[in-house]
């Protein structure tokens, strides 16, 4: 614990900013039903009402409370992005570690498969699959997790390849340890830091990706509140010089910047670079 405390004390201001913002958004997402003044689909007033005491950020295109939807949006957008990245991490990470340790034809096959998926821009691939499978939250998570897992696979495989060539892994192998032990006890501890940093980066990417799809009307579907579609639904206000529709977009940007700052700090710490 003291280690952690010193690490935090030594953290640069950008990392602090990142940590504070992320924690704040995390708690808002967690406590959404408690903090939010209204329900996320509840119609509470006229359409496009201006900012007032009863509706802090006014109302949206259907007369729902904008502040409430911002709070629920944190929950839905971040929740879906987190679920997607976790799934991709588990899928791609375990397949990558396995392929890099065992090698052989399965590794070759998976490698070629990943190469082909990565040859198509992921937005285009995701749009193709969304057209076929339809735009439900489940298919959204599965499709993006599937595409994202290729990145984790690449990294995990490269790490496992490098680490399994080291003497201590060879020693464990000669000792007769099983595959599970080799991966879990010998390789994973050394691969964890870069994998976690990659998790942060991919989380940002998945978050932006889902927000973009929702903005295009193809991600999280109404009436569920989400930051991407909130921009789309209220965009018309911008032509009247109102900044309200920009707030969800700013929230997306804020969280992405915050997570990027944390990842930057983690990478610098794990690589031992001071500058």
């Amino acid at each position: 614990m003291t280690n952690l405390a010193t690490a935090f004390r030594a953290a640069p201001p950008t990392a602090w900013f990142g940590l504070v913002v992320t924690t704040l958004i995390f708690f808002v997402a967690l406590l959404a039903p408690v903090i939010a003044p209204y329900g996320q689909t509840q119609i509470v007033g006229p359409e496009f009402a201006p900012w007032s005491n009863s509706h802090l950020l006014g109302t949206d295109n259907l007369g729902r409370d904008m502040a409430t939807r911002m709070i629920y949006g944190a929950r839905n957008t971040v929740g879906v992005a987190l679920a997607t990245t976790l799934l991709a991490f588990l899928l791609g990470g375990s397949a990558g570690l396995l392929a890099g340790t065992v090698r052989g034809w399965a590794d070759q096959l998976l490698g070629r498969f990943v190469d082909i998926i990565m040859a198509i821009p992921s937005l285009i691939f995701a749009l193709l699959l969304l057209a076929i499978f339809g735009t439900s939250i489940a298919s959204l998570i599965l499709i993006i997790a599937g595409l994202e897992s290729t990145r984790f696979f690449r990294l995990a495989r490269a790490l496992a390849l490098g680490i399994s060539a080291l003497d201590y892994v060879e020693a464990a192998r000669l000792r007769g340890e099983g595959l599970g032990w080799l991966i879990y006890r010998e390789i994973l501890p050394n691969a964890a830091a870069p994998l976690i940093a990659e998790f942060g980066l991919r989380l940002c990417f998945a978050f932006l990706f889902i927000a973009t799809l929702s903005f295009l009307g193809l991600g999280i579907q109404p009436p569920t509140a989400d930051w991407g579609s909130m921009v789309r639904d209220n965009a018309v206000l911008i032509t009247y010089g109102d900044i309200t529709p920009l707030l969800p977009a700013a929230a997306i940007a804020l969280l992405t910047v915050a997570v990027n700052f944390i990842v930057d700090w983690l990478l610098q710490r794990s690589s031992g670079l001071k500058d």
């Binding site: 973009t212 991407g228 965009a235 911008i238 032509t239 920009l246 977009a249 997306i252 940007a253």
Partner: peptide, 14 residues
């Protein structure tokens, strides 16, 4: 890099 494209676009429009 961290800003969604539609955010930049709407700021420019505004």
């Amino acid at each position: 890099i961290s800003l969604p494209e539609f955010f930049v676009a709407y700021i420019l429009i505004l």
